[in-house]
Computed example of a mutant assay.
Amino acid sequence: MVLPKFEVAAYWNESSGFADVFDVDYFIEQTRGYVEVVKDLPAEIASREPFKVDCSKRKGHFDYVETVLPALLEHQYISLTPAMNQRRDRNPAYAKASYCQGCYSALRLNKNVESKAVELLQAIPKPFLSLHLRFEPDMVAYSRCSYTGLSSKSMDSIEAARREGRKVLTGDAARLWRNRGKCPLTPSETAFILQALGIPTNTNIYLAAGDGLMELEGFTSVYKNTYTKSSLLTHEAFENMHGNTKAALDYYVSVNSDAYVATFFGNMDKMVTAMRTMQGLQRTLVLSRRAFANYTAAGLAGQQLAKAMWDAHREEYVRGRGSALPEYCFCEFKL
């Protein structure tokens, strides 16, 4: 296997690579015996284009044995698109063990990033809750959801981030999409749900969020002890960081937080919740956008809505593990 590459897109303005975040030599050493990892392509195939295998979730559910293995055997050299959501229960035991080793034992931040992460973690008042809040312009634009009550500045930012083919849904399509839980929670909606769950407003909260978070005052006006990377790190250190480095800091802090709450279940949330589970850490919760959308669509508000949201999260909140975590764990398989 060639050293992994990060998914990049022009609108992220991101150019950092695997080695800018992770300890490459450690990754190679820890995966030895499971799979051979090389830093660069062998010379005999470096000039060839790999056969691309699209494993993205929009292509439907499939497994690697049926889809990827035949392509690898036929073409010898393939590249895979990200596939965080694909099933792995039918993979052979050795493949599950290798996947577990690569995801949870072999990934370690490089020394430079880890030192910044430790510095950031130490600067946060304890105990604290790490909140992965997603309400950046590109996130909202990509969701195709419409919102009322946003500032003109936020609306302009969303429109500027909207790309061709991502028009706002309207009518029944918009209603069904929102009721399926596809629309990001606003900061004020997030604050409301946290209050409904009984999380005190004086809780120390670290915002694990990307640049350009909109409508943040809707959250910080309720939860005033809120901290961010930019408020805890020096201006120079923060401004010189790649986007992936900032995300790595959020990941490190979130894994090591006293509690973790996610408003969206994206790739980072999958990694954090899984790693916290692997380390035996509880107090991990993914908020239900679907429940909030359905209850508000039914006309619930105020205390009625708060009670409904508590009921929707009661089991996961008490247990400390969101239901989005898998019932089985492929890490139970060892070589």
Rank of each mutant, 00 (worst) to 15 (best):
D89E: 15
C329Q: 01
R162M: 09
V113C: 04
T170H: 12
P4C: 06
S16W: 05
T190W: 03
P92I: 06
K224E: 12
M214G: 06
M241C: 08
E44Y: 12
L80Y: 08
F51S: 08
F51M: 10
K229A: 03
T186K: 02
A274C: 01
Q30V: 08
G243R: 05
E164P: 12
D269H: 06
Y295G: 01
N225G: 00
N85F: 09
D23C: 07
N179W: 06
R58L: 10
K334S: 07
D269I: 02
S143P: 05
S188M: 11
E14L: 04
F330K: 08
F22D: 00
C100M: 01
Y252S: 02
M309R: 09
F22A: 00
H242Q: 09
L281Q: 11
E66Q: 13
A93D: 06
E49L: 15
L325G: 04
V2S: 11
L109C: 08
A247F: 11
K57F: 11
T263Q: 03
A301W: 07
Q304T: 13
L185F: 08
T277Q: 14
W310R: 11
E217T: 15
A301S: 14
M214D: 03
M278H: 12
C183Q: 05
E164N: 12
G210T: 04
K167S: 10
A306G: 03
A43M: 12
F135N: 04
Q195D: 10
S47R: 13
S146A: 10
M241Q: 09
T201I: 15
N13T: 09
W177I: 05
L232E: 01
L69Q: 13
N91L: 14
E332A: 13
T273P: 01
M214I: 06
K182S: 13
S98Y: 08
D138E: 09
Q303W: 00
L150S: 11
F219L: 07
R314G: 01
S15A: 12
L233K: 04
G320D: 00
L169R: 06
L216E: 00
L249F: 00
F264P: 15
A298H: 15
A208S: 15
V255M: 06
F27W: 09
N294W: 07
E217P: 05
Y99N: 14
R175A: 14
T148Q: 14
C183R: 07
Q303I: 06
S288E: 00
L121D: 11
Y317V: 09
V113K: 03
